[in-house]
Amino acid sequence: MELKTIACRVRRSALQMIYHAGSGHPGGSLSPAEILTWLYARELGLDPARIDAPDRNRFVLSKGHGCPALYAVARHVGLLDPGQLSGFRKIDRDLQGHPNIGTTPWVETSTGSLGQGFSAAIGIALGLRHQQIAARTYVLLGDGELQEGEIWEGAMFAAHYHLDNLCAIIDYNKMQSDDLNANIMMLEPLREKWSAFGWQVIEIDGHDFGQIEKAFGEARETRGKPTVIVANTIKGQGISYMAGNPLWHGSVKLKPEELVRALRDLQTPEIDIEGYVNGSIW
């Protein structure tokens, strides 16, 4: 399947999950759709039959609130049974409101408290290297998350230990819960900060698969230091009424007509729209 098609379906599934759950974070689930699609469809090379292989590549969603996109991509690459998506945020079901290692073995560490997934990913990368396992570790950070002090503790640590088996990606959609990053707490100059901390910095358009492919290739070739990909993205990307609007960051309850409008924006066949709304299609 074409990457663009997968990313489009990831967005549909993410919004459908949030609609049926009655809560969840749409904005930050839409902006990393291409990055997550690339990781799971091309980069990680996970084998569903050997999901606990010690030499597997690892991915950590440090911005845990974006998990609808993670679950959606897992469903579209065959790691997750489609029917599981209906249990998102529901009692006695598997897909928690933030990623939990419990019943989803491809979730490498539980996240949801910003900053921690980054440190845990660093620990995984260090643990792999300590045991001379050649696998790579990837971690997706939110931009608002960079305001956590723990991120900069980790940034120093990963550079100090020359963790070139580690690649962080910043979903730089320029918005956080309440407002623009710039109005909450300035992040710029972002490239320079990471560079000064000793990281290889690559800046791309996070919705362009060509640039994504090139950046991950460069990260793989980088020796002696960790890589950060600053992925410029649009919050709510793909949905006309959400894109660039911070109102859609927080946990929201989507109305049926909002889901329908979003599904039309995502070129969903008219014949399927009712199924997404009533939950007969996942």
């Binding site: 010690p54 560490t109 921690q116 440190s119 990913a121 620990g123 260090l126 643990g127 396992i133």
Partner: peptide
Amino acid sequence: AVAGGMAAT
């Protein structure tokens, strides 16, 4: 949290 990650391996 690094310790948690190392234990994961």
